[in-house]
Amino acid sequence: MSRLLFLPFLASLALSVTAADDYKLGPLSQENPAVPKGKVTQMPVHESKIFPGTKRDWWIYVPAQYTPEKPANLMVFQDGHDYVGTKGAWRVPVVFDNLIASGDMKPTIAVFLNPGHIGDTKPASAWKNNNRGKEYNSLGDAYARFLLEEILPRVTKDYHLTDDPEGWGIGGASSGAICAFTVAWERPNQFRKVFSTIGSYVDLAGGHVYPALIRITERKPIRVYLQDGTGDIDNQFGNWPVANRQMDAALTFMKYDHTFTLGDGAHNSKHGASIFPEAMKWLWR
């Protein structure tokens, strides 16, 4: 190859190596044959009273190390279908297996919840469930009550959860992220840890008020991991990167135990999933 032809090749190679949103999963997101495997169970379809007319799929992960004599920690994930698999982006069961085995997390039961859907015909994709926006973007305590009054009593029927709020976490992406924050904001006496990626702290249903609300409210005992990307959404409802920066600034001003990781990604799970194991180490430290 001539030198003149070789230079453009090197330039294109450099661009491909530093391309935006080029995130990869690390070793803690890969199955390790030497690590004990937890069990994922799909639960019966749940019909809600707090969100009348809605039905949803949901799953429970129980680590291999769980014993009824020792109460487990809890982590709840919104848009559960996106987190529950072992071959997708998040691979929560795989990551939890690895982190629990290494001692970076205590035995933790995970609950994966899809948003509710009204109607007899379920969409092909759970992202299209028609009650998602109402449940996830709305402020107030409705979703927290849904968890505490409907879902978690079903979990504790079979499994022993810690009653220490420091052992209860909740997470999600996009609208699922603001939902997670809202639950901890409304019930800090029960949920103390929040994992938020590409969070929709914009005016989809009034969530843009959180940065101001955080600044004028007495600090709550919650720990927050925030992530977003500079290529996230900018539309009539707000600018996602700006909104997450404002959340970071407000949490910093009020001296919350929090961290903010800003990448160059778009509105997807690539960056969040790539840092998920380290985020869990930080959140559960």
Rank of each mutant, 00 (worst) to 15 (best):
A20D: 06
I198F: 09
G167T: 03
S16L: 14
K157T: 15
G263K: 12
N129P: 08
F191Q: 09
R215V: 07
K37S: 13
I275M: 07
F195T: 09
W59S: 08
G26V: 10
F237P: 00
D79Y: 03
P241W: 09
F237V: 13
T259H: 02
A279P: 01
T41N: 09
N189M: 05
G116S: 05
A101V: 12
Y225R: 09
N239C: 07
P123F: 00
K255P: 00
P165D: 10
R132D: 15
V194C: 03
G26Y: 09
Q78H: 15
A72K: 11
L28K: 14
A126M: 14
K87I: 05
A101M: 04
L283M: 01
N114W: 07
D21Q: 06
V76G: 06
V209D: 11
S48P: 15
F181T: 02
D57Q: 11
I214P: 12
V35T: 14
L74V: 15
G171R: 09
G167H: 09
D163T: 13
H46F: 12
H160C: 08
Y256K: 06
I178T: 03
L15G: 12
M280R: 08
D21C: 07
T67S: 12
H208W: 14
V17N: 04
A101L: 07
L113T: 12
K39W: 04
D22I: 10
D22Y: 02
V155Y: 01
K122V: 15
H271N: 11
D104K: 11
K255Y: 00
Y136C: 02
V84Y: 04
N244H: 11
G207C: 08
R219H: 07
Q65C: 07
F195H: 15
G265N: 09
E149A: 12
Q78Y: 10
P221N: 04
C179Q: 07
M254L: 10
V35C: 03
K87Q: 11
N268W: 03
W240E: 01
G199R: 04
K128D: 15
H160L: 08
V40W: 06
W168A: 13
M247H: 00
T156I: 09
M254R: 15
H46R: 07
L213E: 15
L204A: 05
W282V: 02
D164N: 15
K24W: 09
T121C: 00
P93C: 06
G265F: 00
T156H: 05
A266T: 14
T252L: 01
W168G: 08
T217M: 01
V209F: 03
L226T: 06
Y66G: 01
L4I: 14
R187D: 03
K220V: 04
W282C: 06
G272E: 06
G272Q: 14
G238S: 05
V209P: 01
A173I: 15
N73I: 01
T217Q: 09
A142V: 12
W185P: 06
R56K: 08
